[in-house]
Design a protein around this nucleic acid. Sequence first.
DNA 1: GTACGTGCAAAGACTTTGCAGAGAC
DNA 2: GTCTCTGCAAAGTCTTTGCACGTAC
Lengths: 149, 149
Amino acid sequence: MTDRTSPLESFHEFLRSRDLKSTSQRDMIVEQIFSKPHHHFSAEELLETLREKDPSMSRATVYRTLLLLQDGNMLEELDIGKGHKYFEPMLGVSHHDHLICLGCEQIIEFESPEIESIQDQIIKKNQFEAVYHTHRIFGYCQLCQKKSK
Amino acid sequence: MTDRTSPLESFHEFLRSRDLKSTSQRDMIVEQIFSKPHHHFSAEELLETLREKDPSMSRATVYRTLLLLQDGNMLEELDIGKGHKYFEPMLGVSHHDHLICLGCEQIIEFESPEIESIQDQIIKKNQFEAVYHTHRIFGYCQLCQKKSK
DNA sequence: GTACGTGCAAAGACTTTGCAGAGAC
DNA sequence: GTCTCTGCAAAGTCTTTGCACGTAC
């Protein structure tokens, strides 16, 4: 929809809509997240990267900004079962699910309209009102399968 | 397969196969878990219940026994996105996935051979070796939908 | 008698929060 | 100038671990 606007612009728009302020810290965080092609990261990894550029970057600010981005639908949580959350940027990306390698933590994405449609039937049958879903398949990627041989 | 053996017997069998010992604490934990019909619980909830019967029950023992039960495939982890793990007993229960109510945390189970078979195709196409998967749909159950009106 | 198990408390990992000073608008 | 934000450190939550004592086999 808004292919023309940059992530930072979208973010500023979101802040304005909530009467929140733009700050250099928030901008730095958003720029860092959206500077890479679609990827996955943890809060602590992000903090570490940001501190290389600005050692005074606060852990609290990073966590608070991640919450903001989730509120603004620019970011989604992704639980890979490792005791901490992963995040994935969701700007200009359509819904998808994940194959997660238990060996190297590589994440492969997949989309399946067939599954989604069966899922819709299940939801209807249970008179449930769905908000979101996650479908994760854990196992070993091709490379890790070879390694273990 | 082993419908005739009780959960406690299965557990003892598992312990023997690993050269581990039966103890009254372990038995108490296993009995508590399998005393209810299929249900879901957190480690802390379980600990609290157990301490009502035996105030000296150790948190560490509970966590360690939960790990054992997972190793023995008698228990599965279920992440409902609340910062802590849920567990569900898996003895005599076939694989299923979950609808999770964001309002009351009620968990509805579903099974779909159609989804599983599409999933298998996806796994094959990505040359992945699947170990397990979780498919969770978050939203609102019928009751919570009514409440919010 | 010898592992292994238990209970305790401390440590760990990740995340959230209270507060005083700083900065956006 | 006001209201929000930041950084720090402390607190919180869930889970794991080290260690001395206890117990199953």
